[in-house]
Amino acid sequence: MSSQQVAQEDILGTAARWRDEGKDVALATVIATWGSSPRPVGSQLVADGDGRFEGSVSGGCIEGAVIEEARKVMGSGAPSVLEFGVSNEQAWEVGLACGGTVRVLVEKVE
């Protein structure tokens, strides 16, 4: 592995390591964006059953909701696709303050 990949957050490496520790692990990946969004397609977050997480799929606006979904996916084993947009901003829901829309795939690491 190049020094660059070590220096940067290695989300997929962390996923493997946490599985090796026997934890439930889920991966969240930005699979599409529309308009202004803080993290590009391909950005990832890894979460485990103990509440640890690394990486990001937004500027911090939707990570809470994504991690909650990750816990459900760890239980069910079925992948899910979440969509967050600015329309949620008015309600007591999560949304992107930047005005973009982002689609996130959440999957369990078996």
Binding site: L12, A16, R19, L27, E107, K108, V109, E110
Partner: peptide, 11 residues
């Protein structure tokens, strides 16, 4: 994601 896929991808 199957572990075999993750390990191969990391490799």
């Amino acid at each position: 994601m199957q572990r075999t896929i993750l390990d191969r991808l990391n490799g």
